[in-house]
Amino acid sequence: MASLVAEAIQAEIGATERWPDNARLFQPYQVEQITFPDYAACLSIKTLLHMCGLKFKVELRANAEEMSPSGKVPFLQLGAFLISEVEPIIAAVKTRGFHLSADLTDIQKSELKAYIALIDNVLVNAELYLAWLHPETLEQVTKPRYGSVYCWPLNLILPWRKQREVKLKLVSLEWADRTMEEVCEEVHTCCQALSERLEKQQYFFGSKPTELDAVVFGHLYTLITTELPNKAIADVINKFQNLVDFCTRVDQIYFKDLNNDY
């Protein structure tokens, strides 16, 4: 509770200053360390910042997760303030005057919130499920990557500990007992909803990008491009051609054309 208040106060104080020149985004090593659920979150934030046209520097740290105030990556350093995780960062960017969804109607704004919540509840959990509970992916990809920066025996202990933590979280959300098919079904329903909202538009709310576009791109792009032993979730997403096209489009505009790093 105290930290919630502190966060609110920090966001308020932070708002008096515009975007600092030395904004830094901290995340684990991209090539060898980061797990794909974390990568999806990092990509969402990077896309958001690019959409706002904000300058920032990506800092790769092996201990980014332990450095983060909430224990989760990515986290953003704005002057003296540290903001971690996707939603607080979206809020912090907004309070500094970079509000992508400012022009939306109230109904659209609440719709936007609902879609972001949908992604949080479905795609994020599906990613965690695939990364940490699907045995093949866990042993072949997630554990070796998560432990890659540590020496023996920490490279065995720490992934094991993290797996236990994620599993507990998924148990409490009643995701742990699901089968891969059930998870794919959830993802299918979620994509269906997103696909129907997007239709043939360039972005989810017309011709201008919003926070939702950044978050959807971060997750879908990660899920369809990451090489994994199990492609079931990627196959589900690939069935929705307009979502795949959307990913290609955002990738082209905000990364390839601007020569930005992922």
Partner: peptide
């Protein structure tokens, strides 16, 4: 100090 958080052996 935060930068030094994490695991060491």
């Amino acid at each position: 100090v935060r930068e030094q958080a994490g695991h060491s052996l």
